[in-house]
């Protein structure tokens, strides 16, 4: 599995497309709790973690439960860790849960890349 993180709008998906030869049909873009792990690439994991916060679900437990399904996936998540502590409890929890999930995934990843302006910094 490969984990790609980075700030919003940094060209993470484009970089993944080029590096791993992904077609549009390979990419699942999260917008809620459901993840289609049959796609090679799962994008916008931060939308999944926000949905988890709203549903009082545990994103790490969810990934643990499907571990064999994403073992060869390209996973992409916005880094939301660098701003001021959010005023809203929902967004504070979102920030925590996104960080917790990224740490869990990075620990299990073969490669962790951070994308900055379309360029890779390899973290693992």
């Amino acid at each position: 599995m490969v984990l790609i993180i980075g700030g919003a709008f940094q060209g993470k998906l484009n970089w993944a497309r080029e590096t791993y030869a992904l077609a549009d049909s390979d990419v699942f873009s999260c917008s809620g709790l459901e993840i289609d792990f049959s796609r090679r690439c799962v994008y916008h994991l931060e939308e999944f973690t926000l949905a988890c916060v709203d549903a009082d679900a545990d994103p790490v437990a969810c990934f643990e439960a499907h571990a064999e399904q994403w073992a060869d996936s390209v996973l992409i998540c916005d880094d939301v860790s660098c701003g001021v502590v959010p005023m809203s409890a929902r967004l504070r929890l979102w920030r925590n849960e996104t960080g917790r999930l990224c740490q869990y995934l990075a620990a299990h990843a073969d490669r962790v890349s951070r994308i900055f302006c379309g360029l890779e910094q390899r973290l693992k």
Binding site: G7, F9, Q10, D79, V80, C117
Partner: peptide, 24 residues
Amino acid sequence: IYSDAERYDEITELYRTSLAMADR
């Protein structure tokens, strides 16, 4: 300015996507 845990209004988000475009 791309790594904070905030859901911005439309105008701020337009500014962020536009700056990222110029940066890239």
